[in-house]
């Protein structure tokens, strides 16, 4: 099929982009273009018209520092949140990292004990146990086997969060922890998958070393837009494989490397 194109929305690129998260956008764009899919990148920040969200085929939002998160939270609740919710309910594939993932839950309880309401899209809530409790920081290795996506190799990244996220009844975790903390350091789950939206704590950024997730989002976006499954041409991901192996070898000795 010729003349394929996707509109990728990057929410608050100037505010929610502290942990190298633009790498995710770079990867999504290039992996489309390498297959002849034209990309139209929409950067949607504070001043943007909220109706642009209706035109998006794929949505991404990264993590940020506290001050920036406050500014964004206000804009989401007052302004763009309802359209974002509609898009996700309508199965637009999307990826939300760390702070963005937390925003989409029922609420976030701060270290001081204030409950900040979220967008109530993901069936999750997040609580920060207080400034004296350690942040969850370090390399993380997960196994992805959920109802939407299965990846045979380990997926690797880095996490750095104070909040602990808990899944409500009926919520499906994005992945299981092989090494690291994940949602809350208790139940071995990592992230959430809801319709075609992924919420996760993985920085790294997540997509460059784990391009299968990028391809999953692209495939879903094409399916949604063109109404049929479009096979994506295979790309050479040998460097990506080596980068994952370095992390797995360092932190999961004893596991089968070829897995």
């Amino acid at each position: 099929m010729k003349n394929l194109s996707l509109t990728i929305g990057w929410l608050y690129p100037d505010l929610m982009s502290t942990y190298g998260d633009r790498g995710n956008i770079i990867v999504l764009t290039k992996r489309c273009e390498d297959r002849g899919i034209k990309v139209n990148l929409e950067k949607i920040s504070l001043e943007a018209d909220k109706n642009k969200i209706k035109e998006l085929d794929l949505i991404f939002m990264g993590g940020a520092q506290d001050k920036q998160q406050e500014i964004v939270n206000k804009d989401l609740i007052e302004n763009k949140g309802s359209l974002l919710k509609r898009a996700i309910e309508d199965e637009i594939p999307s990826l939300f990292i760390c702070g963005a993932y937390q925003f989409l839950g029922k609420y976030y309880k701060t270290a001081e004990g204030h409950k900040i309401p979220g967008l109530n899209i993901f069936p999750i809530y997040t609580e920060n146990p207080g400034e004296n409790v350690k942040r969850l920081i370090g390399n993380i290795i997960i196994e992805i086997r959920n109802s939407k996506l299965e990846i045979r190799n380990f997926v690797v990244g880095f996490e750095n969060h104070g909040g602990r996220t808990y899944l409500l009844n009926g919520a499906e975790p994005f992945a299981q922890i092989a090494y690291g903390f994940g949602n809350n350091d208790k139940d071995k789950t990592e992230g959430v998958i809801y319709k075609n939206a992924i919420g996760t704590y993985l920085h790294g950024p997540i997509l460059p070393k784990n391009p299968q997730i990028a391809d999953f989002l692209i495939e879903k976006a094409l399916f949604k837009k063109y109404g049929k499954k479009i096979e994506l041409e295979k790309l050479d991901d040998s460097i990506e494989k080596k980068a994952r192996e370095v992390v797995v070898k360092k932190y999961l000795s004893g596991y089968n490397q070829t897995k």
Partner: peptide
């Protein structure tokens, strides 16, 4: 470096 391949991926995307 320790993270040679992370850097290699970065350059793969930067240099096309």
């Amino acid at each position: 470096g320790d993270r040679t391949f992370d850097l290699a991926i970065r350059f793969k995307y930067a240099l096309n």
